[in-house]
Amino acid sequence: MEYIVEGIRHALRLIFSLDSEIFGIVLLSLKVSTIAIFLSSLTGVPVGFFIGVSEFWGKKLLVTIFNTLMAFPTVVVGLLVYSFISRQGPLGPLGLLFTPRAMVIGQFILATPIIVALTISATQGIDPRVKITAMTLGAGPLRTAVTILSEARFALMAAVVAGFGRVIAEVGCAMMVGGNIRGYTRTMTTAIALETAKGEFAFGLALGFILLAVAFSVNLLLHWLQSKRD
């Protein structure tokens, strides 16, 4: 019990002294996850929208696949990306293994199905009158699509935040393709895993608090945006 209290005390000291190593780790985590989510949103939202609004053969199966992929084990994604970018892999010559870029790729693969699946349900949840109204007012296909997305904006924000929550907190993939290299590819989660294994509870706890704080702030931001409403 004693060492936990001591750990928390030490963790708070590390946070408030703005420890440069912790600071660097947090920054890298945010950078990698933000880039990955940005790219995921850019692809996932249009793909999800298209699946959501159109009718085609095999749509149900596709939706089920994306729903399943939401729970894609991070180590499996790690393994997959690893096999592609390792020296013998097809993308080996690009030298991506154990770089932040590799982590972005892994996180992109993890987040995209979440954003796609949640965008599908967001667009399907939209009142069918939105499309009809846009059409009767003379909107073309593109403007109609943008209008539907705009009506679904809060659900879309939630989709993006869910994706971010998944990747900022995942450890398996970042560890495998990033390599947890100090000062280069060490993220909050990989650092926590390592420091705990080493018995450095204080360091791990400090990062744990920050990780929680980040997740909490992002959700708070979403909540604030939703309550603000336009």
Partner: peptide
Amino acid sequence: RQKMTLVLQNPFLFSTTVEKNVAYGLKAR
């Protein structure tokens, strides 16, 4: 379609201001 318009039985107003709603079709044109 831009020469006519239909008002639905239960009209749908976009979740924004009255002004932006009324402006919608004008922007489309």
